[in-house]
């Protein structure tokens, strides 16, 4: 909301230079109006014009939306910059380790910790192995079959095999989005034997996601898959 400015006394010269209330707003007038910089007869004429001109009103509303979004984003960036400046550059891992070892009893405790870690690793190493990427094939399913398919495992790197049967044989755009339509990943893919492979290279948190295939020139949505992660 903005405050209601008091009416200014109309000076004689305003009547001579008064803008017409029929004329559409210039860019400068629009900005001055939104920043409450107008006064007197000019403000009256601009406000009268906005009462009756849908085109100018739309420009004003568009500029207001843009400005509001800009302020929120700019404040966030400024906060991040301030925090980074306040925290200072973060020392590297080796520098932090060195500083800790220099503390009283730090070296002794550090050596004991390293020894214990080495013993633990030797004891459990055979049972440890890197989890390979989990492959999930997304197909066209309907009805009960659609609900019965297995889900991906949360946290495991994923490789998606997308059903591309019937789609154009060219490079297509791929998108992974959350249920709230926040885009997480974008890529491109080309079908090989009716399947487009997409190595996500990361695991996902539990939830439901959308995997979409787009036709590049017009960004036309060609196919959408639901991906359940548990």
């Amino acid at each position: 909301m903005s405050e209601l400015s008091p009416e200014d006394e109309r000076r004689p010269e305003d009547l001579l230079t008064r803008r017409s209330n029929a004329a559409c707003l210039s860019e400068t007038e629009l900005e001055d109006f939104l920043h409450n910089r107008l006064s007197g007869a000019t403000r009256e004429c601009v406000e009268e014009h906005l009462l009756v001109c849908p085109a100018c009103l739309e420009r004003v509303e568009e500029e207001e939306q843009f400005a509001a979004s800009f302020r929120t984003a700019a404040r966030r960036i400024e906060d991040e910059s301030l925090k980074a400046a306040f925290d200072g550059p973060r020392p590297g891992a080796w520098a932090r380790l060195g500083a800790w070892l220099k503390r009283p009893f730090g070296l002794g405790v550090g050596l004991a910790f390293v020894g214990a870690a080495a013993l633990l690793t030797l004891a459990v190493a055979p049972s440890l192995h890197t989890q390979p990427a989990m492959e999930i094939t997304l197909r066209a399913e309907r009805g009960l079959a659609a609900a019965a398919g297995p889900s991906a495992e949360a946290g495991r790197p994923l490789r998606l095999n997308l059903d591309a049967a019937g789609l154009p044989g060219q490079t297509l755009e791929l998108e992974l989005a959350t249920m709230n339509n926040s885009v997480l990943l974008e890529s491109q893919g080309l079908a090989t034997g009716n399947i487009i492979g997409w190595e996500l290279g990361r695991g996902l948190d539990a939830g439901t996601y959308w995997v979409r295939i787009y036709h590049p020139p017009e960004n036309t949505l060609l196919r959408e898959f639901a991906l359940n992660v548990k």
């Binding site: 197909r139 066209a140 949505l221 959408e224």
Partner: peptide, 19 residues
């Protein structure tokens, strides 16, 4: 972003297939 919103009912919905 608006054009990429989920189109419920407009497109064939896919489910996770066999892993």
């Amino acid at each position: 972003r608006v054009s990429r919103g989920p189109r419920i009912g407009n497109f064939l919905r896919k489910a996770t297939g066999a892993g």
